[in-house]
Design a protein around this nucleic acid. Structure first.
Length: 264
DNA sequence: ATGGTGGAGTATCCA
């Protein structure tokens, strides 16, 4: 089974790119973030035409997460236990579904904006709540195959940003964020990094300043697997080519590339 | 040249 995560930066403007790639890459389960639409605006039909069932949560133009699966969708959960709420759109940052026997969580971790912003504190609270809840799942049953996937808005180690000096006083690289990530990583392993080590291996490139052609990016999208899931991983990759601009006059790519994991 | 990209939705806000 092939699972993937992709911050699509608006599913309505990216629908053709996403469905084209789904077919080309032969993906079974795709978790999406930043769909930037309400539930009734989500383009379900192009997915259905390819044999994918879709669940989505979104209540505004902000956030929005979805899961598309061609191996079934069961036990859907919008948000997780204890998830902190910032506003009415907050719950559209986490969506869980069991697909082909694997519990997949599509996560859009709060950005944090700046270190002195209340959004930064909210980000840390959100990560702590996720850690508590996800730890509880494994305490109940250590054998569960669980994938925590998405845009974590954290660069866990220095080589995950193209220039540490540029990010010196920014979110995504602070010790408190990295510590929160490591806490979750103590039970859920990054199953992608061993197959795509850095430095210079990124999942996101800012739209401005020619960051993509200059290969100046950040690794902030991750697939973290429970022990039972990690044991099944046979391959992983970052689909960097999906970040490339299309032909002149065609819609822009997302600023994130998809991350792909194969399970046996 | 004081910008530079892109998506939301139509004035800015956000990433």
């Amino acid at each position: 089974m092939r699972i993937a995560t992709w911050n699509v930066n608006s599913i309505r403007s990216r629908i053709d790119r996403v469905t084209d790639w789904l077919q080309r890459a032969d993906v079974d389960v795709l978790a999406m973030q930043e769909t930037k639409c309400k539930d009734d605006q989500f383009p379900t039909m192009p997915f259905a035409a390819l044999g994918y069932e879709v669940v989505h949560t979104g209540v505004s133009q902000w956030n929005g997460v979805a899961i598309a699966s061609r191996v079934g969708i069961d036990d859907v959960a919008v948000g997780f236990d204890g998830q902190p709420m910032w506003d009415e759109a907050s719950e559209a940052r986490a969506l869980g579904a069991t697909c082909g026997g694997v519990r997949v969580w599509s996560l859009y971790v709060p950005n944090g904006r700046t270190v002195d912003s209340p959004h930064y504190d909210y980000k840390l609270e959100w990560l702590a709540a996720l850690d508590r809840t996800a730890s509880g799942w494994l305490a109940d049953d250590p054998e569960l195959p669980i994938a925590l996937v998405g845009d974590w808005n954290i660069a866990p180690i220095d080589e995950d940003v193209w220039d540490v000096e540029v990010f010196a006083h920014s979110t995504h690289v602070t010790e408190r964020e990295r510590s929160a990530f490591r806490a979750i990583e103590s039970r859920f392993a990054d199953v992608v990094r061993p197959f795509t080590p850095g430095p210079g291996t990124y999942t996101y490139w800012d739209y401005t300043q020619l960051r993509f052609p200059k290969r100046q990016g950040m690794r902030i999208d991750f697939v973290l697997g429970s022990p039972a899931l990690a044991a099944r991983v046979t391959h992983a990759e970052i689909a960097r080519d999906e970040r490339k601009p299309g032909k002149k006059g065609t819609p822009a790519p997302s600023d994130h590339a998809p991350v792909v994991v194969d399970l046996d």
